[in-house]
Amino acid sequence: MGGCLSVNVDRIPGYEEPALLSAETPFSVREVEALYELFKKLSHSVFDDGVIHKEELLLALFRDKNKTNLFADRIFDLFDLKQNGVIEFGEFVRSLGVFHPSAPQEDKVAFAFRLYDLRRTGYIEREELQEMVLALLHESELALSDDLIQAIVDKTFNEVDSKGDGKIDQEEWKEFVLKNPSLIKNMTLPYLMDISLAFPSFLSPSET
């Protein structure tokens, strides 16, 4: 693993070589190093242990480590590739790679699908869509009548479910996103373009 620099003493547990992560993601080695600077900050914000706990993600997103938010929970679950309840450095970089402006669209579409497939059945079901709409309305402290909500959900669901089998599969989702590209707008973070400026890593130099 190109590990000429792995002599560093205070690496966090689960650290992976930037060169390795760079090869797997749209990030350059230096950008991975910048992400490491960011990761160190995030992963020590609540628990001083070098992995990101859900509280730490919530703190970063909402300034409130006890916030309940369905979608942040989903993000956390998807980032936690090993499903061990914490986000390690490698998981962080690989997952954020999907959000890179130059990451393939298919990856973004697929990520969004998994995000919305709340029960991981491989399909987005009508109840899941309804649950998510309710969650957003709740988050926005917005009360709509049940009929209205049902109408919004049904209209969209029937539009996406082109096969009419009562569930949305990956293929239908892909088609729908193609028609509504704004749906995966939040799967792209322009910030990742200049990450090495935002979190310059002077102290962990790489010679490549």
């Binding site: 909402f62 957003l136 988050e139």
Partner: peptide, 28 residues
């Protein structure tokens, strides 16, 4: 907007907060 547009408005899906001044600047 359709139902998925509505969902995508969630601030839980806006990860830009991670990058703001080292994280956590209000509601982004």
């Amino acid at each position: 907007v359709n139902a998925f547009d509505i969902i995508s408005l969630s601030s839980g899906l806006d990860l830009s907060g991670l990058f703001k001044a080292g994280g956590g600047v209000g509601e982004n």
